[in-house]
Amino acid sequence: MPQRILAQIIEQRELTPSHYRLRLAAPEIAQTAKAGQYVHVLPRATHSFDPLLRRAFSIMRAAEDAIDILYRIEGRGTALLARRKAGETIDVLGPLGLPFAPLTTHNILVGGGVGVPPLVLLAAQAVPEVRIQALIGARAATEIIGQEDFRDYDVPVEVATDDGSAGHQGLVTDLLERQLSQSGLTGQGLTVFACGPLPMLRVVAAMSQRYKVPCQVSLEENMPCGVGVCNGCVVPVLGAGDDYGNYRRICVDGPVLWANEVNWGHYSGDSC
């Protein structure tokens, strides 16, 4: 059950001038959060009204009664969030949304940019019997997210950077193609889990379909309420959709969807 809590900031760590990792004291959320779920965070003080709405962040770590989120400064909300300091409290609603499906025998986690965090929690919550390979894409070496976390969980990591400053120079989907074509695991209980920019997710979804590998994607949209009442965060899906039409609210019926449920041809993802 989601809770609204005033969480104390344990640590606000600057990873790069635009990337921050925030650790919050949130026992109620940490104890129940499942990988793929998110928290809805109010970056402003409760009695200011601008920016008005909460921001959604995937939970990256849930342990020792604390949760971690990781974000890049994108706009007014995240800029404000980055100025909050350890010891201050912050209004948090969560855990929200549906988690990833259970891991299978073999799993490939594909994360792009600040899309890596929910995959880190997925690896953290894995039982020892499952095999996991993590693939991380970033613009440059300095912006690689989650590499150390995956190593802590003994998950092998391959990296791709746009500028070649670390790992493969190119796209993380190049690494996925190599894995899918060489691993010989397709059809052997292999599942792909992906979170990242929409262009990356499109390619991951299409590639998984081509190799007949089940694939889950974690999507992002403007999410005014996070609890399913505003119908603002819908994405087009194939089939029945969200009760009324071929849309699904990703706040409560996502953010994780099976890639073959998404109507990629009608999905612009043109969020504001």
């Binding site: 008005l52 709405l53 009324y244 612009s268």
Partner: peptide, 19 residues
Amino acid sequence: PRAGNAPPRTCETAAGMLN
């Protein structure tokens, strides 16, 4: 029944939002 408009359907503005 109405499926509603295509996304994006909402956008935050100064101390408010458009839907």
